[in-house]
Computed example of a mutant assay.
Amino acid sequence: MMLKKKNLMIGVILTATAVLAALLFFSIREEKEDRVDFLMDTFIQQQITGRKAKQTGEKVFQALKAFDDSLSMYNTESEISKINNAAGISYVKVAEQTYNLLKRSQELSTLHNSFDFTIAPITALWHEAKENGVPPTEEQVAQRLALVDYKKVLFNDEEQSVMLAEKGMAIDMGGIAKGYACDVVRSIYQKSDISTALISIGGNVYTYRTPRGKQGYRVGIRNPIGDSADALLSLMSTEQVIATSGAYERFFEYQGISYHHIIDKNTGFPAQSDLLSATIVTADGALADFLSTTYYILGKKAVLETIEQEKATLAKGETPQFAIIAIDKQYNIYVSPSLKDKVELLEDDGGKYRFAV
């Protein structure tokens, strides 16, 4: 009997030792890669854990560089520039990824009239205005607005080619490119030998899987009236894209008036919103980027309507397609019901901010 117990104890010890050795083996082989690159006119930060962490980080960098090279309207050799230069003249054959993104952009443009991926004539005008420090006139804006119409983007599926119907039209992918880039990165992470990862592309964050021993990644949401490094909220996330839009970046002042970079397609001028920021949480990166800008433009009323719609969706036992966090100019914080237990206020800034919903 004693011999059996002794043998059992030895077996338990050997099993525990084997498990410990296996864990140690895999932990030793796992790499941690933290890297920061500058692409797509923003800083891109990756935090990767896994046996191919460094290799995966480099693979993502190369993929995003190629992605940016094909989409930038300021790169004369990009596919987008070639389409813009051939506006009103001819079709331009593009790569499959570019074609799919343009088709998705047209699809999203049909969802709400605040978004149009042919906004480039207006964004280029405001880019010049920022460089000169003087806003454009209403007449200049009106002339450019006449060239904005996503319905005049023509697609040839057989040739995988694209054409803008009128000369002077132009495409700007800035409204969804960073979110779509998160979808591109997801595909790379899924095919790589890594355990977990987080990538931040400007105002868009994607979290891949769950870090060992944790419930998810804690992602900071910026204080819209603070510095870029000041996180106001913490959101628990896994396998989600978090996209935030606000007027706190890329702006200039003229005669005491601040002009920011989020343009309302209906007016051609910076959006006059009653929000400080809008954040979308969903698995679809392109949708997250599109909706964060859209809700910022639409404002608090649309946010509250969406939260009520989500309550009805949850009451049916269904999963909402996306969730929202918004902060208005009175420092009220609105949070979707599905995110209630995942969001924390990190700083009260003197008691200024408060949860309203």
Results as ranks from 00 to 15, higher is better:
Ser105Cys: 14
Leu145His: 07
Asn204Trp: 01
Ala231Lys: 01
Asp116Arg: 09
Gly220Ala: 03
Ser105Ala: 14
Pro224Asn: 04
Ile201Gly: 01
Ala197Met: 14
Gly133Lys: 06
Ser105Ile: 06
Thr110Ile: 11
Leu147Gln: 12
Ile176Lys: 06
Glu128Asn: 06
Glu128Trp: 05
Met236Asp: 11
Val148Ser: 08
Glu158Leu: 11
His127Ala: 07
Gly175Tyr: 06
Arg144Glu: 12
Pro135Phe: 11
Tyr180Glu: 09
Pro135Tyr: 11
Ser187Arg: 07
Leu232His: 12
Cys182Ala: 15
Tyr189Gln: 01
Asp183His: 02
Lys178Thr: 07
Ala177Gly: 07
Lys152Asp: 13
Glu131Arg: 13
Gln143Met: 11
Glu159Ala: 12
Ile225Asn: 04
Ala181Leu: 02
Val134Thr: 09
Leu235Glu: 00
Arg222Asp: 00
Gln160His: 06
Asn132Phe: 02
Ala197Tyr: 12
Ala165Thr: 06
Ile188Asp: 05
Glu166Asn: 14
Leu235Trp: 01
Glu166Ser: 13
Asp227Trp: 04
Gly216Ala: 02
Arg186Lys: 13
Val205Asn: 09
Thr110Trp: 09
Gln190Asn: 11
Leu154Trp: 04
Val219His: 00
His127Glu: 08
Leu125Phe: 07
Pro136His: 09
Val162Cys: 12
Gln160Ser: 11
Lys152Tyr: 05
Ile122Thr: 06
Ala197Ser: 15
Lys151Val: 07
Leu233Asn: 03
Glu131Met: 14
Gln215Thr: 08
Leu145Thr: 07
Asp149Lys: 14
Ala165Gln: 14
Val148Gly: 05
Ile171Ala: 10
Ser200Lys: 12
Tyr150Phe: 14
Asn223Tyr: 01
Phe155Asn: 02
Leu164Tyr: 09
Ile199His: 04
Glu158Gln: 15
Lys178Ala: 06
Ala142Thr: 15
Ala181Val: 01
Pro224Leu: 03
Ala170Asn: 12
Val141Lys: 08
Tyr189Gly: 00
Ile188Thr: 07
Ala146Asp: 14
Ser234Tyr: 00
Pro136Ala: 11
His127Asn: 13
Ile199Asp: 01
Gln143His: 11
Pro136Ile: 10
